[in-house]
């Protein structure tokens, strides 16, 4: 683009601007984590639908997870989901500043409490599935 004083400025490329700096890349990866969470959610919806169709349909669904390409996708889904959790909890002091007795609670305490809650939820879900229910 030509400016009034005769100089030129180059506008950043609309598709690749975010590759120019590490923090832009990290921002885009944070946003893109939702795509992997969405793909996983759709897979789970599909699994529940196949479950409702009977044993043959459901077994075909669970067999899918043995394939190499699905395993690679699963690892990516796990890494992106964990990155989403990390980025979500690291901003909690800014999204949800808390006061106790007129004093601001330290950012590290709010982040630490969320990380601990994340760990407890993970262990609880794992234990509930493995040890809970019939059979």
């Amino acid at each position: 683009m030509k400016l009034a004083n005769g100089n030129y400025i180059r506008s950043p490329n609309r598709y690749s601007w975010w590759l120019r700096q590490g923090r832009y890349v990290r921002y885009m990866m944070r946003e893109l984590s939702s795509l992997f969470i969405g793909v996983f959610s759709v897979m789970m919806v599909w699994g529940l639908y196949r479950l409702s169709q009977g044993e043959t349909a459901f077994t075909a669904f669970t067999d899918m997870f043995w394939s190499k390409s699905i395993l690679v996708l699963s690892v990516l889904m796990f890494l992106f989901a964990a990155y989403h959790s990390y980025t979500w909890f690291i901003v909690t002091p800014k999204a949800m500043p808390l006061k106790l007795g007129g004093k601001r609670i330290a950012a590290g305490v709010i982040i630490g409490a969320h990380m601990l809650l994340w760990l407890l939820c993970s262990v609880a879900v794992w234990a509930a599935f493995v040890y809970g229910g019939a059979v």
């Binding site: 996983f40 889904m77 989901a81 989403h84 879900v125």
Partner: peptide, 14 residues
Amino acid sequence: TALLTPVLVLLFAL
């Protein structure tokens, strides 16, 4: 999703 998706992926996909 921040609290549950990582453990759910680990459980049901991995």
